[in-house]
């Protein structure tokens, strides 16, 4: 699925839930289901700043695609991370950097989450895009290197 398709699917999933307690229930379930990050990647380097709870994000490149794994000590946060990971993981750095992420607004997350929570969400997104940029830049310079 493309990033756009995953986003549209999420928006549709959320539209079936009538109240915010149901939406939270769904987010919490996603959090509980999130594949855990390998303990060895829970390093200070992988900690994302700007979250009230602790969030670790690890990135790996497999077959030209970026794979994100993440964890948090708060389960709602984990659920939100899971949304991000579902949308962005397993795509090329180019697809990630160019992605227009409209699902957060469309689901209503920014207006319903507490400000610290939505700030944390945005820091997380920024971090994911930064990783993609970094990989893109590295592969670009490697390509340039071989040409020379």
């Amino acid at each position: 699925m493309t990033i756009k398709e995953t986003q549209d699917e999420l928006i549709s999933d959320f539209s079936f839930m009538e109240n915010w307690m149901d939406k939270y229930e769904y987010i919490i379930q996603l959090g509980k289901d999130l594949p855990l990050i390998d303990e060895k990647y829970k390093t200070p380097d992988n900690l994302i700043k700007g979250c009230q709870s602790q969030v670790w994000l690890h990135t790996e490149m497999t077959g030209g695609k970026l794979v994100f794994t993440a964890d948090s000590d708060a389960v709602i946060t984990k659920g939100l991370i899971s949304l991000m990971v579902n949308v962005l993981s397993n795509h090329t750095p180019k697809e990630i950097t160019e992605a227009d992420l409209y699902f957060i607004e469309a689901i209503g997350l920014t207006s319903h989450l507490s400000p610290t929570r939505s700030n944390g969400l945005l820091s997380m997104l920024k971090q994911m895009k930064m990783y993609a940029f970094a990989y893109q830049a590295t592969s670009q310079s490697q390509k340039n290197g071989t040409e020379l």
Binding site: W20, Y24, S53, A74, V75, I76, T77, L113, R117
Partner: peptide
Amino acid sequence: IHPYDLGELLDKQ
């Protein structure tokens, strides 16, 4: 349970 999670669900109630 993280206090922040609990606080957020209390807020929604």
